[in-house]
Amino acid sequence: MRHVAVLPALVLLFLRLLANRLLGSLAPLIGAPARSWLLAVGFATLGLGAGSPSLAADIGSDFDAANKLYEQGKFSEAAAAYQKLLDAGAPAEAIHFNLGNAWFKAGQLGRAIAEWRLAERSSPRDPSVRFNLQFARKRVTGSDAPAGVLWQRALRSLTLNEWTVLASVLLWVWFLLLALREFKPMLRKVLSGYTSTAGLGALLLAVCLAGAAALQFNTRPAVVIVPEAIARTGPLDEAKVLHQLRDGTEVVVLDEKEVTVGESKQTWLQVRDNARRIGWVKGDQLSVLAAGRT
């Protein structure tokens, strides 16, 4: 049973070293041109069409300009500048993080939480993102508990790609051990413990991967972005008021309906909050977190 705990821990340690230490620690040490190239290569790898050093440098300078606006206390302008960067296709965790900060400083608690949650998807264990989220949640509910129950939070502690790599590594180890057993039958007895451990581990991680994917793609989290959103019994202004959702309240979208009012169309979302209360809220009062990558 000791293998069950040791093997994923070792793989996770390897991933952390690879992702955080190497990239994160090397970045400050290398010069700006090298960073531009790194960004360009990174974006090109992601297929974002920004694979030229000049374009990456533009994004970098725009980012710096947005940061300057933030430092000058022009938080709304800074938020607009960060949003422009995101719209231009620079999906960096740092932009979501800084945009969250700008919204927070501008008094938009719900929008800040929404952006930090998007940043959390890329870096679920980043201490800065976690701290800011907890700080904002405490403002909303008086508690810094993250949204969701324990197993959901556990699944969200790794990105989908991290779960994928973990499951993949265990899968490789399991099948290589199985192959070795076929190639050298005399090693079967020796390898049986490792093989079953790797098999169970791979199965467990595959289940975790499926759960994390389901959590990310089958649930639509959203955050209230207006001071007071009113949850009603139905998708109509005339429907009875059920309860009130404060700015920054995190909810899960259960259903969606478009209602024609006069000549305009209104989108209503059926949401469930942490207290499992269900009600219909106008769509423009919520920021729905789109199913993202990683």
Binding site: A94, A102, S122, F135, A213, R293
Partner: peptide, 25 residues
């Protein structure tokens, strides 16, 4: 550790490592 009465400050640098990667699966 950030000060307990404010949020962590903005990131000064745009890292490619923090970019959202495409889904491996």
């Amino acid at each position: 550790p950030p000060p307990a009465d404010d949020i962590v400050h903005i990131r000064p640098r745009l890292d490619a490592a923090g970019a959202a990667a495409p889904l491996l699966v």
